[in-house]
Design a protein around this nucleic acid. Structure first.
Length: 561
RNA sequence: UGGGGCGUAGCCAAGUGGUAAGGCAGCGGAUUUUGAUUCCGCCAUUCGCAGGUUCGACUCCUGCCGCCCCAGCCA
């Protein structure tokens, strides 16, 4: 054991994967750990992938090894360059880097083809002329063994000839496949002569029409791992049954290395659907604005919603790694998000549902600047100046004509603090003919500038505000979970569980001027975290709510306390 | 009478024979110019169930129960 151990080796609460890697390193079974993240470029990455990314890149990093990004592009029918680009962008955004180790399974097509011929020469693979239906029927069932194909015992010469002609394009799609000759009676269905190559006359995003036969996942994955020198091939639980096939191929092929596959449970999140297929449908059918709709669990969607990559990394770290299937409470994601944002997000003032407040005794035309701290959690974030004047906007919810017992915001005759500014006392609620409150008339105490009374009197409530003369109009988009239940689709139809109220738009919000320049996610004090949406134009800002603040007041109300 | 996995609190999750970590949620309370944050306290006599081995079992053995994955020429 070296004098300098990786920190991870001594940390408590390490997971079983890290234990395996540490043991292999300690025993000298490998000199350095090499992992890989192998997405198929058939859609956008989502938060479930973030777990796999964090595991593969994270373990490599912690143990001083490396992690490859390898596109598993073996099925041209579903794959596209758009996805290849998006996946790379999203992994980088998440904070991981593959350096020069960017690979494609399609880079290995020639080598894989040669290995397929090797298998044929060894009598371990054969060309099957049966149709897909016939193969399926002969495969048997979960409880009944399969039966051999009539083509199973073709000669090596005939198999070689046929396989070469498959490659040459002599046959139509589906006419023949190459199968491994393993065991039609195996209890593991993956071993009942699995298909290794199929005919697909389709253009591939990278190899174009150079090939018309493509290796299956099973024939490509382990061999690609071996070619790249991957030591630990970490994947999710559903590939467990494939491991015997993975090992069989590695053992029977002259591969340059001996990778090992280990499986962990994939991430499931409450109120969320991780199926790429379903997410694609939501985007394609216009149920959301696209793959990057802020309600989507995609990394692109989370980014647009204002979720910082550090929050996602923290979330998956807290979730841990194990082999038990589980569904993580959405609240755990929210907590990681709030923790991250609380430490880093600049504070701003914004009024979502404005009502005008007029300070009767404040000189008309006068305007002053008030200093406010940018982040009470971080002194280095400094301060900024807020314009203040006779007319302000405050939150409609912050005034109640007949306040309940525990309400300590503004009400007739009551004094509250305008954050960072002055104490104001409400004199009158001005209403229109219909009885709607249009203006609140108050008086302020000039001696309370900054928010403290020299006479030591206290107020219970502090509310946020924005200067009417200086405020920026904005549209605010409030998001709720895309689904109405923690287990969407449990009754059979995920579409039926879509939340019809997942988006609420507020058209007339007012923001403090500094918000015109902010990038990144900020906190609107007392409301939540928000970030500017790319739909913003110079004349009209659009902000997304990333997540609200904890709100015990609303909660007390809901509880009827 | 197919094969492979998994069952520790409401949700994640440590624990690998010596007497149940931690996080989230929840519940109290303190501080607070965000009803936020922060802080402090409470929250599994019990580890799917039943037997067995042992001075001692979440950990070992046996049996049962429950849940998940596999019958694509998807990955």
């Amino acid at each position: 054991m070296s004098a300098v151990e990786p920190a991870a080796e001594t940390e408590a609460g390490r997971d079983f994967l890290r234990d395996i890697v540490a043991a292999d390193l300690a025993a000298g079974r490998c000199a350095a750990v090499v992992t890989r993240f192998p997405p198929e470029p058939n859609g956008y990455l989502h938060i479930g992938h973030a777990k796999a990314i964090a595991i593969n890149f994270g373990i490599a990093e912690e143990f001083g090894g490396r992690c490859h990004l390898r596109f598993d592009d073996t099925n041209p029918a579903k794959e596209a360059q758009e996805y290849i680009d998006a996946i790379q962008r999203d992994i980088h955004w998440l904070g991981f880097d593959w350096g020069s180790h960017l690979y494609y399974a399609s880079d290995y097509f020639e080598q894989l083809y040669e290995w397929a011929e090797h298998l044929i020469r060894q009598g371990l693979a054969y060309v099957d002329d049966q149709s897909a239906d016939e193969i399926r029927a002969a495969r048997g069932t979960l409880t009944a063994p399969g039966t051999s194909s009539p083509f199973r015992d073709r000669s090596v010469a005939e198999n070689l000839d046929l396989f070469r002609r498959m490659r040459a394009g002599e046959f139509r799609n589906g006419a023949r496949v190459l199968r491994a000759k393993i065991d039609m009676g195996s209890g593991n269905i993956n071993l009942r002569d699995p298909v290794l190559y199929r005919i697909l006359h389709a253009a591939h995003p990278r190899t174009g029409t150079r090939w018309c036969i493509y290796p299956t996942y099973d024939f490509a994955h382990g061999q690609s791992d071996a070619i790249e020198g991957v030591t630990h091939s970490l994947c999710s639980l559903e590939f467990e049954d494939h491991r015997p096939l993975y090992d069989w191929l590695i053992e029977h092929l002259p591969v340059p290395a001996r990778p090992r596959q280990y499986e962990f449970a994939r991430l499931n999140l409450g109120y969320t659907v991780m199926s790429k297929r379903f997410l694609k449908r939501l985007a394609d059918e216009g149920r959301v604005s696209g793959w990057d709709d802020p309600r989507m669990p995609t990394l692109a969607g989370l980014r647009r919603r204002g979720v910082p990559p550090a929050a996602i990394r923290e979330f998956v770290r807290r979730v841990g790694v194990a082999r038990a299937n589980s569904t993580v409470d959405l609240a755990m994601f929210d907590a990681a998000l709030r923790d991250t944002l609380n430490r880093t997000a600049p504070r701003r003032m914004a009024v979502l549902r404005p009502v005008k407040l007029v300070i009767e005794n404040y000189p008309p035309g006068l305007s002053e600047e008030i200093e406010a701290v940018n982040n009470p959690e971080d002194a280095s974030a400094g301060t900024r100046m807020l314009p203040f004047g006779r007319e302000l906007y405050i939150e409609r919810d912050d005034f109640l004509e007949t306040p309940p017992k525990n309400f300590y915001r503004l009400a007739p005759g009551r004094e509250v603090r305008l954050r960072y500014a002055y104490f104001v006392t409400c004199r009158e609620a001005v209403k229109d003919a219909a009885g709607n409150i249009i203006e609140l008339h108050c008086i302020y105490d000039p001696a309370t500038k900054g928010g403290n009374a020299p006479d030591g009197r206290r107020v219970r409530g502090t509310i946020h505000w924005v200067s009417a003369a200086h405020a920026l109009p904005a549209e605010i988009r409030l998001y709720d979970p895309l689904f109405t239940r923690p287990d969407p689709g449990a009754d059979g139809d995920m579409m039926a569980d879509l939340n019809p109220n997942s988006l609420e738009t507020l058209a007339d919000a007012r923001l403090e001027p500094a918000l015109a320049e902010d990038d990144g996610t900020v906190q609107f004090e007392r409301l939540g975290y928000f970030c500017r949406d790319p739909d913003s134009t110079p004349g009209r800002l659009v902000f997304n709510r990333t997540i609200g603040l904890h709100d015990t007041w609303t909660k007390m109300h809901a509880d009827g306390r």
